[in-house]
Amino acid sequence: MALVLCQQVETQIPIEVEGITPERLLGKSNLEIGQTKILYGRDEVELGELFSIAGALNASRHLVFDGNLGCVQGIGAGQSSGTIEIETDSGRHVGSQMSGGQISSKASVSDFLGIEMTGGVIKVKGNAGDGVGGHFPGSKFGMNRGSILIGGNVGNGLGQAMRRGTIAVGGTAGELTGWNMLAGTIMVFGASGIDAGAGMKRGTIVLAGGLKSQLSPTFVRGGFYPVPILNMLAGWLEQNNFFADVSSLRSSFQAFNGDLLNGGRGEIFVAERSSH
């Protein structure tokens, strides 16, 4: 049985639900859950003032967010276990700093999805905004372990400064994918914007849908060959019911090494059909 929180208010004011996670609500009555303090703009209000609460949270730790979630920020932020389902388009910071469990969105999410997460899985059927898997302003590192799987398109700065973990995007990506990336894996199955991998130190970026423009000249061309580890990643994505066809990972890729301005230990694999 799931606990369903449905946001009832038509508003443009941000609603912060950081900390409303399955493990923190477990053992509380619906009345106590309704009395949990959240931020509505600058004001502290009770959760029950904005959300209707139905069902119950049992040992399966299944929490559902529904209703007008466009201004609801921080769904699943800090989550460490259980499952959160998001039924409609939601706001920023979904799954930020989460360390375990799973978040599944049936719609799209706004910016900063899964930033600084350290574990768990986030699945988004729709699109995501800028800064997926990145970091808060002032932090040094982005995502560090865990997986983010997105069926649609994403904005700019995908995986910025990510340190570990895996991000897969079924659609297109904006500019600066893997900007200052330290390690980890990013796979984009649609076309990718300019300056992918700029400043990357290590890690792997797979541009299976090709590039909209050439890579920076600080990336040097390697060989053109099938990459065994990508074959394994394809299998892993299929196991996780990824939204897009991943068979392209089993073909040959043009390898690039870089960013030479930052040691050149990173790698970008670009699909054959790219402009390169």
Binding site: S147, T166, L233
Partner: peptide
């Protein structure tokens, strides 16, 4: 190079026919 897939870590050792995983 290493690659973490799920919870499993694999090492990619460069060899003359590609990579030994």
């Amino acid at each position: 190079k290493s690659k973490l897939i799920g919870e499993r870590r694999f090492w990619r050792v460069p060899v003359m026919d590609g990579e030994f995983i």
